[in-house]
């Protein structure tokens, strides 16, 4: 398992670009759907073994930004350096950008049809459920201590009340909890 696998011939800019372009163009459903798809495809090509991928994935989560994009950029850089990084960035970004503009133009034409309105209302109705499930999973998977629980509840209340100050409040919360974790109080 642990033999230093000789790096296969490094793929070039365009093969990495078209690799991520293809994935981004056909995968609907955001980061949690895209990340496993990217992982399997990378492994199949022999570009990146699974365990290394999940190391990269953990790193990608420590940087802000869409999960699928960050993971792809880290994987691209790991596979082919800076050109790979750029290729992954463009490959992930371009298809949805083009698709969104097409869809927006299309909806400009048919957006007032009752059936289309109904479809969009229905598609939106799942959002409260999906976001609540996401919160539920984060809460369930975390290792809890009393102090973490108190800080997290305070964080939720403060950020929800903060309105357009949510972003600064988020960083204040992170700073306070980093300090609390450092104290070893929890």
């Amino acid at each position: 398992m642990n033999d230093p696998s000789p790096p296969v011939k490094r793929p070039g800019f365009f093969s990495i670009f078209s690799f991520f372009f293809g994935i981004s163009a056909i995968t609907i459903g955001g980061g949690y759907v895209m990340v496993p798809v990217i992982q399997r495809a990378l492994e199949k090509r022999g570009w990146l073994p699974e365990d290394e991928f999940y190391d990269l994935f953990a790193t990608a989560q420590s940087v802000p930004g869409p999960l699928a994009l960050n993971t792809a950029m880290f994987a691209g850089r790991r596979v082919a350096g800076l050109p790979g990084f750029l290729a992954a960035f463009l490959g992930i970004l371009l298809p949805p950008f083009a698709a969104i503009l097409l869809l927006a133009a299309l909806l400009g034409a048919i957006g007032d049809w009752p059936v289309v309105q109904g479809f969009l209302d229905g598609a939106f109705a799942v959002v409260p459920g999906l976001t609540a499930a996401l919160a539920f999973n984060m809460i369930r998977k975390r290792r809890w201590t009393p102090l973490r629980a108190v800080l997290t509840v305070a964080s939720a209340v403060a950020i929800t009340l903060a309105g357009t100050w949510a972003v600064p409040t988020f960083f204040a919360v992170v700073a306070v909890s980093a300090f609390a974790e450092r104290k070893g109080a929890c």
């Binding site: 420590s62 409260p128 996401l134 809460i139 964080s155 950020i159 919360v173 909890s177």
Partner: peptide, 15 residues
């Protein structure tokens, strides 16, 4: 861990 505390706050706001 500190980021998790903040992130749960953000998702609470979203919910």
């Amino acid at each position: 861990e500190a980021l998790k505390t903040g992130t749960i706050g953000l998702i609470a706001m979203t919910v």
